[in-house]
């Protein structure tokens, strides 16, 4: 029994160390970004003779002053993004896995997917306004559709790359079709799905920004960071930058949440080092 206890302690210590390293890396990266920002702001000031890019200190000072406006905008944008990513995940992943896991379905459905996948959802904005107006649903729809295709293509690819030995071992144990999905397809593809979701965070936030600024200018829906930027487009640059920092923070929050989800649900990927015979 001592082996397991030692192994458990070793694993916990390694997890804590890995977590601490991760936090330290993020802090270092934040310092580098802020440092570069500060240097560029000063260089631009020296070259142009007037403030082009506000410094981090100026931006954060204003952000604290405007927190009463920025916080609800952050909340609304984050909620839109959360709804979009959850809906996209729930719709795209099962569909992609079923299509990817079936050779015949993949043969017929994949051309349809690959034909529609490259259409930028932003190009459809005008038609969406006309069809559904400029309310909340359109903003969410634009982001959802972009994330949906990212996740769908990733799910189809991941399902096609499942090693046959996994399928054979579960079929040999007498698994039904549902059993195959439960014991093999879902867990085998989950890491790829979470990676695809993490990669899609950047794209999703870009589209959220576009949808909010475009529709923000047209309709009167609830605020958001994009709307905040649009409304303050003629104000000093610190106003826009404070919302841009908000978008970056939002991306970091979702990326980190997905990373933590991966570490929790796919714990098996983060272990290793067999010994003995």
């Amino acid at each position: 029994m001592s082996v397991r206890t030692q192994g458990g302690d070793r694993r916990s210590a390694a997890e804590i160390l890995s977590g601490a390293k991760s936090v330290a890396t993020y802090l270092l990266a934040a310092c580098v970004v802020l440092g570069v920002w500060w240097i560029v702001a000063h260089i631009l000031y020296a070259v142009r003779g007037y403030s082009v890019l506000p410094t981090p200190a100026e931006t954060f000072r204003l952000a604290i002053t405007l927190r009463g406006d920025l916080a609800p905008a952050f909340g609304n944008s984050a909620l839109r993004f959360l709804i979009s990513i959850v809906v996209a995940f729930v719709l795209a992943v099962p569909f992609g896995l079923v299509v990817g896991f079936s050779r015949r379905l993949h043969q017929y459905v994949s051309p349809l997917v690959f034909l529609t996948y490259p259409i930028p959802p932003v190009a459809l904005l005008v038609f969406l306004y006309m069809a559904f107006g400029t309310g909340e649903a359109v903003r969410v729809f634009v982001v959802t559709i972009a994330l949906f295709f990212q996740l769908l293509v990733a799910a189809m690819g991941a399902a096609r790359q499942i090693p046959p030995s996994f399928v054979t071992s579960v079929r040999s144990a007498g698994a039904t079709k549902w059993g195959l999905y439960k014991h093999v397809v879902l867990p085998a593809t989950l890491p790829s799905m979470l990676t695809a979701a993490r990669v899609s965070v950047g794209l999703g936030i870009t589209l959220l920004y576009i949808a909010e600024t475009r529709i923000g200018a047209v309709g009167g829906a609830r605020s958001g960071l994009g709307v905040f930027i649009k409304v303050h487009s003629h104000a000093p640059a610190e106003y826009e930058l404070s919302a841009v920092v908000g978008l970056a923070l939002m991306g970091l929050v979702f990326y980190t949440a997905l990373e933590l989800l991966d570490r929790w649900l796919c714990r098996w990927r983060h272990v290793g080092g067999g010994g003995g015979t």
Binding site: M1, S2, V3, R4, G7, G8, S169, A173, R267, W268, V271, G272, G273, G274, G275, G276, T277
Partner: peptide, 22 residues
């Protein structure tokens, strides 16, 4: 003692023994 270990934490010989156990 290895019930809660993942295959990646096992040697090849141990993996084969788990396969036999299954």
């Amino acid at each position: 003692g290895f019930e809660n270990s993942f295959p990646a934490e096992l040697s090849e010989g141990m993996k084969r023994r788990v396969g036999i156990a299954r």
